[in-house]
Nucleic acid binder design. Structure first.
Lengths: 170, 170
DNA sequence: ATTGCTGCAAAACCTTTGCAAATGT
DNA sequence: ACATTTGCAAAGGTTTTGCAGCAAT
């Protein structure tokens, strides 16, 4: 998680150069999530948005501690509580998805707006998205049969990714 | 964990009298899970098996603390660690399912052996089972497309149950 | 100036671990 | 007797909270 050319900034403008092209869209989405709820454009937020845009690009899943460490490397003085508070807001506003690993620990991931679910590697903890799902009709039917009003659902597939299979880490 | 007029029950069998008839089956399953791994038939285990058979009948979902409290009421001196250790074994041996609530907290539930998933009430935290699922073919296809070897999956539907809807707790 | 975010440290939670004592076989 | 489990208390890890100070508007 290096970086230098820290031009990105909060500007909802195109960035180009190092493949940051569509990152601006991501950056805007994340900024909106913050500023819908609050006003101040503070340093911690700028750094967080930047880091999350980067994580969005790689699709990396991370723990709260991973994120805290990553941010400290840039900002130094950022508090754990700030990270927790931000993650909470961002999950709430659907910028982040919370994913439960098989061992029960949690990771977060910047996820697109489209309906999707997660495929998790039990070895390296990589998380990928997929679209397949039960039909809305079927889900509603499940709720109806039990007298529930359905609000949401999660579908998570656990397994071993190809590189972990190859390297035999499995 | 009250109980009395617990006629509702999801048991696909008649219940009669104290509804303990088929509980013996449940009891045996739970005992086996313990004794497959170890020998001693200790008091804490007997009480645990009994309590879980009861919870199986009502289909109630519980937290580790709920269970600990429930057991203490009977046994008095049972330690939290024993409860944690037992739950771990029982999840491992598929007697219990771990269910994640919408708020991120965890509950456990005695679940049948058949493949199933969970419907969770976001208000009262009731958990019910349902059978619907993607086809094995589809799940394998998801894995194949991403180069994953699929090991397992979870599907959880969250909503509000009819009684919470009625009582407006929602 | 006002508002509310931030960092820090402490507190609250939840779960695991070490070990002597108790228990079952 | 021997092998395990149990209860207790302490340790570990994670998340939340309270609050003074600070930054943004």
């Amino acid at each position: 998680m290096k970086n230098e050319s820290r031009d990105a900034s909060r500007s909802p403008r195109q960035v180009c150069a190092h493949g940051d092209r569509h990152a601006s869209e991501e950056v805007r989405r994340i900024e909106n999530a913050f500023f819908d709820l609050s006003r101040p454009n503070t340093a911690p937020r700028r750094i967080l948005v930047e880091k999350l845009a980067e994580l969005a690009r790689t699709g990396e899943a991370f723990s709260t501690d991973d994120l805290w460490q990553g941010l400290r490397a840039v900002h130094g003085r950022i508090g754990r509580a700030t990270v927790y508070r931000s993650i909470e807001q961002l999950v709430e506003s659907k910028v982040l998805d919370r994913v439960e690993l098989r061992d029960g620990s949690r990771r977060y991931r910047v996820c697109g707006g489209a309906h999707h679910h997660h495929l998790v590697c039990n070895t390296c903890h990589r998380v990928e998205e997929f679209q397949e799902c039960l039909s809305v009709r079927t889900i509603e039917e499940i709720g109806r049969r039990h007298g529930f009003t359905v609000e949401e659902h999660t579908l998570t597939v656990y397994g071993t990714c190809s590189s972990c299979l190859k390297s035999g880490d499995k």
